[in-house]
Each structure stands twice: as structure tokens, then as C-alpha cells.
């Protein structure tokens, strides 16, 4: 949300929620595999609410939870 707080905002990817198990790789952001789209949306919303973060829906239908 804080696009204006800095000239070059640095976002952290806090979590990735996907439906494709091939995209569940090890790495810094938590990557979760959802069973269906509804579950994917619920998981994303719950994590984003808890972390007060923003949600980005990628064109591949994966969700990113990001925060500055």
C-alpha cells in the first residue's frame, strides 16, 4: 500500500499460494499449495489479513502476498 513512502519501494514476497504443485519450490517465501481456487483465495486472504499485507494476483492465477 505504501507506494509513496519511498522513491523506490522495496517489497518483500511473504508468501506464494498456487494451485500448481510444480511451482512449489524451496526458497525464502512460503509457498503453499491449495486444492482449489476457493481454498486458494481463502488462504491468501487469511495470510494477508494476519500480516497486514497486499495481494497480487498473477496472470498465471498464483497469488503473491507482498509487503513493503
Amino acid at each position: 500500500m505504501g507506494r509513496e513512502s519511498k522513491i523506490n519501494p522495496k517489497y518483500d514476497i511473504l508468501a506464494v499460494i498456487t494451485l500448481n504443485k510444480d511451482r512449489v519450490l524451496s526458497g525464502k517465501p512460503l509457498t503453499l499449495l491449495a486444492q482449489n481456487e476457493e481454498e486458494q483465495k481463502e488462504m491468501t486472504a487469511d495470510i494477508a489479513k494476519a500480516l497486514k499485507a497486499e495481494i497480487v494476483r498473477m496472470k498465471t492465477n498464483d497469488f503473491l502476498i507482498i509487503r513493503e
Partner: peptide
């Protein structure tokens, strides 16, 4: 449009990922 926000046709952000947003 989906998770993207446009103002007067200009792309602003794609941070509207949730339905609520």
C-alpha cells in the same frame, strides 16, 4: 480489470488481488 486498476485507461497497479480489494 481483474486485479489491475486503471484510471482513464492508464495502468496504476496490480495490487488489487483480492475480491474485497
Amino acid at each position: 480489470k481483474g486485479s489491475e486498476l486503471f484510471v482513464d485507461g492508464m495502468f496504476i497497479t496490480n495490487q488489487l488481488g483480492s475480491d474485497q480489494a
